[in-house]
Computed example of a mutant assay.
Amino acid sequence: MMRAVMVLAALVLAGMFAPQARAGEVCNETSYYVDAAKAWGGENGLSAQGWQRIAPGSCVRFSGIPAGVPQFLYARTSEAYLGGAREWLGRTPVCVDRENFQIEGAQDCEAMGLEQREFRQLAPSERARAVLVEPDDFGSRALEAGVQRLLQTLGYEVRVVDGFAGRRSRAQIAAFERDIGASFGGNYERLAERLHETALERNGEVGLNVCNQTSGPTGIAIARQRNERWQSRGWWRIEPGSCMRVVADRLQPGELFVYAQTADGERSEPLRRGVEAFCVAPGRFTAEGRSNCAERGYTQVLFRASPVPVDGVARLTLENADFEDLVQ
């Protein structure tokens, strides 16, 4: 509550003294539904607002941004898609919240209970209209590509996402309409909305969901087999009292291992009752293989088996008793 009051007061003052603001448009020419946020420079540092959900082939406007100031953009795919979030990012760290937010001049993300994301600075020509794209430049075909992507995500037989609604795509659309008992009559906007709603309901919690009930922030790493080779990855930082979906794939029993360590202060405490050795590094890392960790510049630690998934969903709650020196 105190943070909300402070942010609201800052916004009121900013509105009284800021230069005339103008809207900035962000358009989505990708095949994904994305959640976007914008940031801008000011006397008190970077301010930010988000999240705005943008459908494939659509645009939204960000208002209240002073004219002539540097602007930054970050976007991520919605939770409807499997395989983890895809990001459109840069190198400028900005404080954001998990839910809809508007933050004035936040600099210490951790102290305010916020997360940090890396934003891309927009060129002056992009301030009025910035466009999100993929390597496959869908352009005006983004909506059709988005429908194909969602059908594929829901398990329908779409082999190629190309934005061309051919006979196979039309057949899979008809199959989806039969499955839900509704027809969209060629209205791709309404069809995409319903596909996205369905995918969110089905996939929104699929994977590994970790909740941190310890007294401080925690870093999470995972290990699983990829193409018959073990791979370990980290870190995901989870604040106390918060939850995060770390893996966004439908899980099978025995395929995933988890490691955690406290991330508060100079000394970190490791997760207890680990059983399988994998490689980790101090910063963000991806380690291929699980042997010869030290020779390859990694540290070997013991991971714990993930909780057994139910319908592809595994849930792990970390408490103080899970860490060596936090046992009470």
Rank of each mutant, 00 (worst) to 15 (best):
residue 1 M to R: 10
residue 3 R to I: 03
residue 3 R to Y: 04
residue 11 L to I: 12
residue 19 P to K: 06
residue 20 Q to Y: 07
residue 20 Q to V: 15
residue 21 A to E: 11
residue 22 R to A: 14
residue 24 G to L: 04
residue 27 C to E: 14
residue 29 E to I: 01
residue 31 S to R: 14
residue 37 A to N: 01
residue 38 K to Q: 15
residue 39 A to L: 11
residue 40 W to P: 08
residue 44 N to K: 14
residue 48 A to Y: 06
residue 50 G to Y: 02
residue 54 I to V: 15
residue 60 V to M: 03
residue 64 G to W: 11
residue 70 P to S: 12
residue 71 Q to P: 01
residue 72 F to Q: 01
residue 76 R to N: 01
residue 77 T to I: 00
residue 77 T to H: 00
residue 82 L to Q: 13
residue 84 G to N: 02
residue 87 E to C: 01
residue 89 L to Q: 14
residue 90 G to L: 08
residue 91 R to M: 09
residue 92 T to L: 10
residue 96 V to W: 00
residue 105 G to K: 06
residue 107 Q to K: 12
residue 115 E to T: 00
residue 118 E to F: 00
residue 133 V to H: 02
residue 135 P to V: 12
residue 136 D to C: 07
residue 139 G to N: 07
residue 139 G to P: 06
residue 140 S to F: 05
residue 152 Q to A: 15
residue 154 L to V: 10
residue 164 F to R: 14
residue 171 A to K: 09
residue 175 A to T: 05
residue 177 E to N: 01
residue 178 R to S: 12
residue 181 G to F: 10
residue 196 H to V: 00
residue 198 T to F: 03
residue 203 N to F: 02
residue 204 G to A: 14
residue 206 V to T: 14
residue 207 G to Q: 06
residue 211 C to T: 15
residue 213 Q to Y: 09
residue 214 T to Y: 04
residue 220 I to W: 05
residue 220 I to R: 03
residue 221 A to S: 14
residue 223 A to C: 08
residue 224 R to A: 14
residue 230 W to G: 05
residue 235 W to I: 02
residue 236 W to R: 04
residue 242 S to W: 04
residue 246 V to T: 10
residue 267 R to D: 10
residue 270 P to Y: 08
residue 272 R to Y: 03
residue 275 V to N: 05
residue 276 E to G: 03
residue 278 F to R: 11
residue 279 C to F: 02
residue 289 G to P: 09
residue 290 R to D: 13
residue 291 S to Q: 13
residue 291 S to M: 10
residue 293 C to P: 04
residue 296 R to G: 06
residue 298 Y to Q: 09
residue 299 T to P: 03
residue 300 Q to F: 09
residue 301 V to M: 09
residue 301 V to G: 04
residue 303 F to T: 08
residue 307 P to I: 12
residue 309 P to N: 11
residue 310 V to I: 13
residue 311 D to G: 08
residue 313 V to A: 06
residue 315 R to S: 13
residue 317 T to F: 07
